[in-house]
Every structure is written in C-alpha cells, then in structure tokens.
Amino acid sequence: MQDVVRGLAEALRLIATGDGELFEIIALSLRVSGIALLISTATGVPVGVALGLTRSRLHGLITALLYTGMGLPPVVVGLFVYLMLSRSGPFGLLGWLFTPSAMITAQTIIALPLVMGLTMTAVRAVDPALRVQVRSLGATALQEAWAVIVEARIGVVAAIVAAFGGIISEVGAVMLVGGNILGKTRVLTTAIVLNTRQGEFTLAIALGIILLALAFAANLALLRLQGKA
C-alpha cells in the first residue's frame, strides 16, 4: 500500500515539476495510440456499418473472423509485424522497425477488429423496423443507412472507446516492434515494464497512475461526445 501512496505522490511530483522525459513519453503514447485509433476508426467504422447492414452467405465466417481478431494477443500481433518489417521481411525496405510507425501499425491491427466487430454488432442491434419505417417515409438507401448509423451511435462510440482502451494499455506489441528506445519509442507501458524490472516500483506505479488517468480522460472525452451525439 505504501508503494501505491508513494507512487501517487511521485506521479504528482513528476507532473508538477514538468519532467521533460515523462512528458515526452506521454506525448509519444498519445501520438501512437491516437493515430492508430484514427486509422482504425476511419476504416473500421464504415466496414463495420457495411457488415452490419448487409447479410451475405459469408456472414457467419466474417463474424467468426472478426470476433477472433477482437481477441488477438498483442504480443502475437507484435511478432507478426516484427517479421513483416524486419530486414528479411516483405516490408523491410520501409525501415519502420523500432520506430513509432511500426508501433502505430501494430496498434492499428489490434484496434481494427475491435472497431469493426463492435460497430457491426451495434448496427445489427438497431431495431429492423426502423429501416422499414424510414424507407416508408421516403428515405433513399443512403439515408436509410445513415438513420441506422445515427441510431447505433452509442454502440459505435463504445467500439472506439474499447479500441482506445485496448491499445493505450497494451505492451507486448509496442515492446517488440518499438524496442523501448528512450526518446524514440518509449511509451508509458514499456516504461512501466522497464522500471519494474529495474526495481523502480515507485516510478513504475507513478507511470501506471498517469496511464490510468490518461485513459480515463480520453474515455470521458469520448463519452461526452457520445452524450452530445
């Protein structure tokens, strides 16, 4: 318990003193997860909506694949991205390994099935009678789809919130493909692992508290957006 209290005090001290290294780590964490979230939202929401609105013979297979994707172990994603981006891999020429680009790629792969799958579920949960009703009122196919999306908005925001929670807190993938290089690829989660290994529990707890506070603030912002939608 004493460690937690000391960690909280240390977290407050680091923030109050404007610790440069800490703010660099926070900024990189937000940048990597923020860009990954943007990419997965921009692609995952439209695909999830399309899957939710249509029924094909492959529906069962697609759903099973998406749900499997939602449970992808980050470390496996990290390994896959590592192999793809390593010098001998197909994308080695990009030179992304041990850079934030590799971390964004890995986090996008983790977030995408979450956004797509949960959006699809939210769209499918909309009362089918709504589609018939808006068509009866003269909606075009596009207007009908939009009416469903608007109705499913709470679920769509929940999908984005879940994806953000999943990637801001994951460590396995960013550790593998980023390498935890100070000033270059060190983010909050990898810094926590490092400090724990070195026995710097107070600092590790402080970073953990800051990570939790960031996730809470981001979720609060998204939920406020949901409330206004």
Binding site: D127, A129, V132, G138, V150, E151
Partner: peptide, 19 residues
C-alpha cells in the same frame, strides 16, 4: 421511382421513433 414512393407513407401498429 423515388418521387412516387415519397407520395406514400405508412403509420405502423408499433410506432418506431428515432432516438
């Protein structure tokens, strides 16, 4: 066609209202 479809509408037994 849309312009003809928009001349007709239904009120169903169960009112389906938007949020």
């Amino acid at each position: 066609p849309l312009e003809l479809r928009r001349q007709v509408t239904t009120v169903f037994q169960r009112p389906v209202l938007q949020q």
